[in-house]
């Protein structure tokens, strides 16, 4: 069973993880609130176009991507279908080290026509009205990389109009968070809410693997406050 050592290791690891995600989550929630207010003000003047949305979203997205300490790959706003006058599916999204607005044209299979309302990072905030951490998953819409997306719903006068989101590449999370967890000395594995390995100080536990059926499945999980991830300490 759980020893006192691993309990305290798990608690310390969970605190490190919560700390790492706290600034991006706080920034995103502030953005979602502000955007709701700004959209409501613009909407009063008439129906919104994709250009107007982009102009509103860009400063928030660029500020989010520029946050210190946590490497954020992309950020922006995805309007619900039918909000805009000129485009059915519009992604107002900036990404990359020198952030540029994402153009979906001509990159791959029908990206323009992907129905994102079914995708977890859009669907869960839409259905629950609350922020959500999705992934890790292969983000074939925006980053094309193995990604965690943090998303928060945007409302105008209580009506859901879309999702503000940000992407963290697992590659960056590994580079930034793993050394901090490794300092604890014990084997520590970060898993998401469906039991998928995000990163682990034990090189045998591969990112993306499911813990079910393996040695980790039976061990106690410690929740990370403020973010839907869990720590398993061995």
């Amino acid at each position: 069973m759980t020893t006192p050592t691993s309990t305290s290791t798990a608690a310390r690891a969970a605190a490190i993880v919560s700390q790492y995600f706290s600034a991006p989550i706080a920034s995103l929630e502030a953005t979602a609130l502000l955007l709701g207010t700004e959209l409501a003000a613009s909407g009063n003047l008439g129906p919104l176009s994709s250009q107007q949305i982009d102009a509103l979203v860009e400063p928030h997205a660029l500020a989010t991507v520029a946050l210190p300490d946590v490497h954020i790959y992309g950020a922006g706003f995805i309007a619900t279908v039918g909000l805009l006058t000129d485009e059915r599916n519009h992604l107002s999204w900036w990404q990359g080290d020198d952030p540029k607005r994402l153009l979906l044209a001509a990159q791959s299979v029908n990206k323009e026509h992907i129905d994102y309302s079914e995708l977890e990072w859009f669907r869960v905030p839409m259905e629950t009205g609350r922020g959500h951490v999705a992934g890790p998953y292969v983000d074939y819409l925006c980053s094309d990389e193995y990604t965690i997306t943090i998303a928060a719903p945007v409302h105008i006068d209580g009506t859901f109009v879309g999702v503000a989101g940000l992407d963290l590449l697992i590659d960056s999370v590994e580079r930034q968070l793993l050394p901090k967890l490794a300092e604890l000395g014990d084997k520590v594995t970060l898993v998401n809410s469906v039991g998928r390995v995000v990163i682990s100080t034990d090189p045998r536990h591969a990112t993306g693997d499911a813990v079910r059926g393996g040695a980790l499945a039976e061990l106690e999980r410690t929740e990370c406050e403020g973010v839907a991830l869990e720590i398993i300490a061995e």
Binding site: S108, V109, N110, H113, I114, D115, P136, Y137, V138, Y140, D144, E145, Y146, R196, T207, G208
Partner: peptide, 27 residues
């Protein structure tokens, strides 16, 4: 396009970005 999306969504469950990108190119 629904069938293409379902195919991509299924292969993305591999959790491999490289393989998923290659699948999208082929699709």
């Amino acid at each position: 396009s629904t069938l293409d999306d379902a195919q991509i969504e299924l292969v993305a469950l591999s959790q491999s970005a490289r393989l998923t990108r290659e699948q999208m190119r082929l699709q």
